[in-house]
């Protein structure tokens, strides 16, 4: 699979990454060569193979649905300036 400028722009948007125009050809080239490497997988028949999501095929642990964390909002918000009245500030979303 070879990616062109449009593909890179589309992927960068999906990943919410601002990529400068002059950097796009470089990314198109390196992403294409990585996809070429990855496509070595195509030579293998995996029709009856179960996908493996966890090294020990373990399942997600369950626990009682109870509160285990105490509220540390002030502590966590001390590391940013973009807060007001306990809320994070972001650019206006609605006019």
């Amino acid at each position: 699979m070879s990616l062109d400028k449009n593909d890179v722009e589309k992927i960068a948007h999906l990943a919410r990454l601002a990529i400068a125009d002059e950097d796009i050809p470089g990314y198109a080239g390196s992403l294409s060569s990585i996809l070429q490497l990855v496509e070595q997988m195509d030579a293998v028949d995996t029709k009856n193979v179960l996908p493996m999501a966890h090294p020990q095929d373990a399942h997600q642990r369950l626990r009682e649905d109870v509160v285990t964390e105490k509220n540390q909002r002030e502590h966590f918000q001390k590391i940013t300036e973009n807060v007001e009245n306990g809320l994070y500030l972001v650019p206006k979303v609605l006019d």
Partner: peptide, 9 residues
Amino acid sequence: KRRIMIGAY
């Protein structure tokens, strides 16, 4: 950024 884009793709 390269790896994020491969992953998103």
